[in-house]
Each structure stands twice: as structure tokens, then as C-alpha cells.
């Protein structure tokens, strides 16, 4: 009797565990197909005649992007500065769909959306809670106590909020257009908001990182660092915050990092994305933040 119960129970436990793993990492389910056309605010058209593209720059009449590479803390850091119309700052979902385990490589999502510049986003699909607002469309309205989000308003301004403090409806009333829900906030009101202790339990070690920020003059900054490799050690959250403070960011926010960290510019991947540190390989993600028409 005892043996039969043990065999049956352990079999059920094993099957259930396999199901949970598949449910978490493999089985995909689309909840909603993104309908960007109805909400998409961009009415600006690209002008081919005045477009200037080099290895490290992109310039047309609406936007001016410059890519710089820094070397700090034994790590290569890629910084894209974006000056121009805030309407070109958008987010996009993998396969244009909101759902569980709906993923694609950053470069693939970027190509699907004709992005000029793109970085991986907040990987909303890895979480079951937290606000998901993409290009003005609410996909998930479940607040997480204490969760810091980056709100990008229609005019391009950015603000770091706490989901406990404000509802998604109120944010929409204030003009929120995109919300990035990963965190933590790195720089809030010009001050570094993380320290070494904040990193414990999240990722205290050096890793590839992705972050977004804004300078005092409104210039938007995308930052991606390499890591986990012989060439680049990677950054801790505090080192990333210090770096972004040094380049003048008044607001900065940490996005999904590690193997997800990818920067795409002018049709190719700029950094060296890696999950294990053995070779370069892009990880599939739920969403991207990009500049494009």
C-alpha cells in the first residue's frame, strides 16, 4: 500500500514538475494580437532624400542617432544617443502578439518593425504581474507592490513610478504611452537610486546589461553592455548606474539583461549577446524598445 502510494505520488509529482517547466519555458499562448495601427501615434514619414547613414550614425530630418562605444570596468559599453521627434520612440512585441512564451530575437522584431535602432525591452512575458502598456494599448493591468516602472509619456518625457503608488488608468490620463516594467530605477531625479545592497537577490555580479535613460536636454539614451565573456566582464547595477550618471542621464532605468541584452542599429546587431559566455548568440525576448517609423 505504502509503496504503491509512493510510486503513484512521485509519478504525479514528476509529471506535474515537467508540466510546470514546459508551461514556464516552452508552451506559448497568444492572448492578444497587437493592433498598432489604431493606436500608433506616428504620422511622420521618413524622408529618403536627407537620410545619412554611417557605421555609427543615422540622421534624417526627424531624428539624429549617434552610437558611441566606451570601455569601462573591463567591459565594452555601447551607447546610442537619440535626438529628435519623440514620436519615433516606440515598443514592439514579438510576432506582434501579446502572450506567454511569445518570443523572437531582438533583431527579428526590429526588422519586422523597420527599426533604425532597437534594444531588448522588459521581457514582460517572464512575469505574470506588472503593468504592460505598449504604444498606448493596455495588455496587463495587475500592479505589483513596490515594483518600479519607467513610464514614457506621449511627449517623450520619462518618469520612474512605483506601481503601488499609481494606477494604470491614472498614468494613461497623464499621457503614458509606454511602460517598461523590469527595473530597478538606476537614476531618479538625477540621483543614483541603487547601491550594492539593492543588487543582492537580483544580480549582484557583473553581467551584460540593457538600460534606457534621458539627458537633461531630452536626448534619449540606449545603453547595452557586453559581459560574461573573456573580452567583457560585464557591469553590476551600481556600475551601470554610475556610468549613466557620468554620461549625464537624469533618469535611467534597468531593462532585462544577461543573455537578453542586445542592441540593433542600421540593420545589424552591434553588441556581443551571450547567455553562457561561450560564443555569441541572441536570446529570444518578448519585446523591444526602438526608434523607427
Amino acid at each position: 500500500m505504502k509503496k504503491i502510494f509512493n510510486i503513484c505520488y512521485l509519478s504525479i509529482l514528476s509529471i506535474f514538475t515537467i508540466f510546470v517547466l514546459l508551461n514556464t519555458f516552452v508552451l506559448s499562448e497568444v492572448y492578444q494580437v497587437a493592433n498598432n495601427s489604431s493606436k500608433n501615434k506616428t504620422l511622420i514619414e521618413p524622408s529618403d532624400s536627407e537620410k545619412t547613414i554611417t557605421e555609427t550614425t543615422y540622421k534624417d530630418e526627424n531624428v539624429d542617432i549617434e552610437l558611441k562605444t566606451y570601455r569601462e570596468k573591463d567591459t565594452t559599453i555601447y551607447v546610442a544617443s537619440i535626438k529628435g521627434d519623440s514620436e519615433l520612440l516606440k515598443t514592439a512585441l514579438a510576432n506582434n502578439s501579446y502572450g506567454k512564451n511569445v518570443t523572437a530575437k531582438t533583431s527579428t522584431i526590429a526588422e519586422d518593425n523597420n527599426a533604425i535602432l532597437a534594444i531588448n525591452g522588459d521581457y514582460y512575458g517572464a512575469q505574470e504581474k506588472g503593468y504592460v502598456l505598449k504604444n498606448g494599448v493596455i495588455y496587463r493591468n495587475i500592479a505589483v507592490s513596490g515594483k518600479e516602472d519607467l513610464v514614457i509619456y506621449e511627449d517623450g518625457t520619462m518618469e520612474i513610478i512605483n506601481e503601488s503608488d499609481i494606477s494604470l488608468e491614472n498614468l494613461l490620463e497623464k499621457g503614458a504611452y509606454n511602460i517598461l516594467s523590469f527595473g530597478p530605477g538606476l537614476i531618479i531625479n538625477g540621483k543614483i537610486s541603487v547601491d550594492a545592497n539593492d543588487e543582492v537577490g537580483k544580480a549582484m555580479a557583473s553581467n551584460p546589461r540593457t538600460a534606457i535613460g534621458v539627458l537633461k536636454d531630452g536626448t534619449i539614451i540606449f545603453v547595452v553592455s557586453d559581459g560574461r565573456s573573456n573580452d567583457s566582464e560585464g557591469l553590476s547595477l551600481l556600475e551601470l548606474a554610475e556610468f549613466m550618471k557620468n554620461i549625464g542621464c537624469v533618469t535611467a532605468y534597468n531593462l532585462d539583461g544577461g543573455g537578453s541584452s542586445t542592441m540593433y542599429f542600421n540593420g545589424k546587431v552591434i553588441n556581443n549577446p551571450t547567455t553562457s559566455g561561450r560564443g555569441t548568440s541572441e536570446r529570444s525576448v518578448s519585446d523591444i524598445v526602438y526608434i523607427g517609423y
Partner: peptide
């Protein structure tokens, strides 16, 4: 098993209601 699985998901940076 539940604790180990929660650890695996935490380290990956994800959650599961089950």
C-alpha cells in the same frame, strides 16, 4: 522540489502561478 523549482525560475527571472 517546489523550493528548487522556485529557485530555478527566480534565477531565470520568471514566475509561474502553479
Amino acid at each position: 522540489v517546489g523550493s528548487i523549482l522556485k529557485g530555478v525560475l527566480d534565477i531565470y527571472g520568471t514566475t509561474n502561478m502553479y
